[in-house]
Amino acid sequence: MSQETPREQQLLITVLGDDPRSMASELCRLCLEARCSISASRLSRHSQAGALVVQASGSWDALARLEGSLAPLGKRLGWQVSVLRTPVNSPRSTGLPYVVYANAAYRADILNELCQFFAVHNIELEAMTCDTYQAPHSATLLMTATLTVNLPQGIQISWLREQFLDFADSLNLDAIIEPWRPTHG
């Protein structure tokens, strides 16, 4: 017996290029014209360039129209465009969402060390941001990182928190791990 293909599908689109404002505008317009809906998106600026990630959903033919229009748009505007088809209801692990905040004097190894800590403990990363900035009253370069992680069910949270704080102390990080809370703006 054959499995039926679901009508709704998803397309994960990444765009890298100049002028993040027009990136968002153009990609939203293309999705609308192709009769696709945007279910998630992230835009970030990096100097004059930007990175845009969009998760679009729709019927297979609507996504095919959208996918076909992306390469010409990217070529015309000088953007790097990547596309990946993803299942709509992919299995996700169940667990507890936690947020990690870390601040320190900038060192190139810190982000790698944070990622390694969670990989070693088999903890999934859901989101990650990292920024560097000049300290207001000195020439010191500082960094701040925020990671959203998904703690597996059954993990002893007090044990993990203790392990994480020892780890942070060993790297001289000002860091905390706490339950994720929705923000209402």
Rank of each mutant, 00 (worst) to 15 (best):
G78D: 13
G78H: 13
G78K: 14
G78Q: 12
W79V: 07
W79N: 07
W79C: 05
W79M: 06
W79T: 05
W79G: 03
Q80A: 10
Q80M: 11
Q80E: 14
V81M: 03
V81D: 01
V81H: 03
V81I: 15
S82R: 15
S82N: 11
S82I: 07
S82Q: 15
V83C: 12
V83F: 05
V83L: 15
L84G: 07
L84D: 07
L84A: 15
R85H: 15
R85F: 13
T86G: 02
T86P: 00
T86R: 07
P87K: 09
P87H: 07
P87N: 11
V88G: 08
V88K: 06
V88C: 11
V88T: 15
N89D: 14
N89C: 09
N89G: 15
N89E: 13
S90Y: 14
S90N: 04
P91E: 09
P91V: 13
P91I: 08
S93Y: 00
S93H: 06
S93E: 09
T94R: 12
T94Q: 11
G95Y: 10
G95N: 10
G95F: 08
G95D: 07
G95K: 12
G95I: 08
L96E: 12
L96W: 02
P97G: 02
P97V: 04
P97K: 10
Y98A: 03
Y98K: 00
V99L: 05
V99N: 03
Y101C: 01
Y101G: 00
Y101Q: 06
A102W: 00
A102M: 02
A102R: 03
N103Q: 10
N103C: 03
N103E: 08
N103I: 06
A104D: 05
A104I: 03
A104K: 04
A105S: 14
A105Q: 14
A105F: 06
Y106S: 05
R107M: 02
A108I: 08
A108V: 11
A108Q: 10
D109A: 12
D109K: 12
D109I: 14
D109P: 02
D109Y: 11
I110T: 09
I110V: 14
I110P: 01
I110E: 01
I110A: 03
I110S: 01
L111S: 01
L111V: 05
L111E: 01
N112I: 07
L114M: 05
L114T: 02
L114G: 01
L114I: 03
L114N: 03
C115H: 09
C115D: 02
Q116Y: 05
